[in-house]
Design a protein around this nucleic acid. Structure first.
Lengths: 152, 152
DNA sequence: CTCCTTATTGCAACTGGTTGCAATAAGGAA
DNA sequence: TTCCTTATTGCAACCAGTTGCAATAAGGAG
């Protein structure tokens, strides 16, 4: 999805187009993958040093609300943002080695159906970070995994 | 689960018992339901005004790491904590009316199995807040749900 | 083009939570 | 009991993100 399309989408939904929003969308579209707010600000600043933190956070919140970007908390103290991709995907994050595995959005289909059928609840299951232990970090067949603090 | 059992558990796993930890566990066990860090501090302060913010946050992080409490982000800017209950449960949170529905932990069983079988990933699926729209807030059969900012 | 409404920006103050580090105090050993 | 090691606390500074509000500027109407 190109940033001009996203801008048009914004406009169509009744939001104003501003240079700031254009720059933000541009950066998110260019920088492929997950970017933190800090990174987005830093990249914009190269061309426009006056970019304002609040404006960036508010725009990111707007874009998330419109499902144009996916915010994700990988548990390292900063939220990352990426362009909303279709089909959906999620991230398995190993709590030990930090390895990330991307999985198809379809893995949530049974849960979505169950929640809809049993609870009439329309769950937003677009983009999750699921924590756990990857194959390598699982104790072979072990009884008690050590739970002492992981040395960061 | 009584707080003395939790203290014993802490001790057994090699952590030290301090008055602060005792007070924190006590408050979490008494106040049933979800408490924010602020609320925990306020309650402790009634008896012991010197309780320190960092100590509380660090203890909560420890208890969460040991799966003795469940931290949950309901999306209102403050994390809440509750004693880890068995069997697991999750919370459906309506993004419109904020209604909360508690659901059994078993709803994640198919996903857990899929992730284990397909990705050899042992997911932590203990306690989630799942956002979406409850029955009442879903557009009857509607075309375009309004996505303008919800007036808080 | 000019005017008007109001969404958006920019700023500064604030909030919830984290961190580095020195002081304290658990709890084990002797 | 006393001593020792080191986990934990308390503090102050910090970090990511939010908020209230006045100033600015989209974009529609005339």
């Amino acid at each position: 999805m190109h940033h001009t399309e996203l801008l048009a989408d914004l406009r169509q939904r009744g939001h104003r187009l501003t240079p700031q929003r254009e720059m933000i969308l541009n950066v998110i579209c260019e920088g492929n993958g997950h970017l933190t707010a800090d990174e987005i600000i830093a990249r914009i600043r190269k061309q426009y040093p006056y970019i304002n933190k609040s404006a960036v956070y508010r725009t990111l919140e707007l874009l998330a609300r419109l499902c144009l970007v996916n915010p994700t908390d990988f548990g390292d103290g900063k939220v990352t943002y990426e362009i909303h991709r279709h089909p959906h995907h999620h991230h398995l994050v190993c709590r030990q080695c930090r390895k990330m595995i991307e999985v198809d959005g379809a893995v949530f289909a049974p849960l979505e159906k169950l929640l809809r059928d049993e609870y009439a609840f329309a769950a937003d299951l677009d983009h999750f970070a699921i924590f756990g232990l990857c194959r390598k970090c699982q104790p072979a067949s072990s009884p008690a995994p050590t739970l002492r603090k992981r040395r960061a």
